[in-house]
Simulated scan of single mutants.
Amino acid sequence: MLSDRLALRRRLFGLAGRQHGFFTAAQAVEVGYSHQAQKHHVDSGNWLRVGRGVFRISEWPAQQFDHLVRLTLWSGGVGVVSHASALSAHDLGEVDPGRVHLSVPTRFRRTTAGTVLHRPLPPEEHIEDRDGYRVTTPSRALAECAEARIEQQWLDSAVGDALERGLTTPRRLRDAAAQLGPTAELGIHVALTASDR
């Protein structure tokens, strides 16, 4: 019996380890924890309930992008961190969004406080996998912010950072902006001009 519990715990830790210590109720069921066992672990303090159907192993250390992992799990794993939140995840510029920007499928209908949802999902070639969440590429995130008309000075700073660090090129930026339309193209053009590219 003890060996069964240890095997369950190892499987859960293996899953949670890829998601900053977070996991969903459905994932816990897949690992082998019944809903009754889940309640027991929450009541005992082994797991923390951090959202509807989302838990975290209580002793797991906090990490910088925990909120992005939690919201990705809240979305059922379909959400992609985008726009200004993607700039923050890539450490570009000085944008510090007050809410998390998440791109979701067109038919996605859930909402949660502190989140801005964008539809539809970006194409797969504009998405990067991270530890526990997915995020738009630097080029796509910059184009999304240009399309959303963030302050030009913030966009200029983020574009300058991305170019300086080699995370994108002027051509990739222009291509990403062209996919989103004239507003994005204009914002990226101004930012590239400001960085003399």
Rank of each mutant, 00 (worst) to 15 (best):
A84T: 13
A194W: 11
A146I: 14
R9P: 01
H20P: 00
L92I: 09
S103L: 02
E151D: 13
A191C: 06
A143C: 09
L121H: 01
E30S: 02
G45T: 00
I188T: 14
A178R: 15
S157R: 15
L180R: 13
R56Q: 13
H101F: 12
Y33H: 04
A141M: 08
D43C: 00
P97T: 05
L92E: 09
A148F: 14
G187V: 14
H126V: 09
H40C: 04
P97M: 01
H41Y: 08
D96Q: 12
R10L: 11
T168L: 10
L87C: 07
L117Y: 14
E144Y: 04
S58L: 03
L48E: 15
V190G: 02
L121F: 01
E147Y: 03
D66K: 10
I188M: 05
L121R: 00
A16H: 06
F55I: 00
A177H: 12
S34L: 07
V104Y: 06
A7T: 07
L6C: 04
S157F: 12
V95I: 09
E164H: 14
L87W: 13
V42W: 02
H90V: 08
G51F: 09
V104A: 08
A25Y: 04
H41R: 07
T106D: 05
D96I: 11
Q179G: 10
L15Y: 01
G93K: 10
L48I: 10
V80Q: 01
Q38I: 09
M1R: 02
L15M: 00
A148N: 15
Q27H: 03
L102I: 13
F23S: 02
I150Q: 08
G160D: 04
G181F: 06
T136A: 00
G21I: 01
T137A: 02
R171P: 00
R149C: 12
R134P: 04
H67M: 03
E94T: 13
L71F: 03
F55H: 10
D66Y: 08
V29Y: 10
T137C: 05
A158T: 12
W154Y: 11
G53N: 06
P105E: 13
R130Y: 14
H90A: 12
A25W: 03
G93V: 02
G76F: 02
R119L: 09
P182T: 15
A178H: 15
D161K: 15
Q64I: 07
F22T: 03
S44I: 01
M1T: 01
D4P: 09
T168F: 07
Y33D: 01
G51E: 07
H67D: 10
G160E: 02
H67N: 05
G14T: 13
T169A: 02
D43K: 02
H35Q: 02
H41A: 08
G181Q: 08
D131P: 04
L117Q: 06
V80G: 00
A178V: 11
Q64G: 08
V29C: 04
L163S: 07
H20Y: 11
G14C: 00
T115M: 12
H126E: 14
T111F: 14
V95M: 11
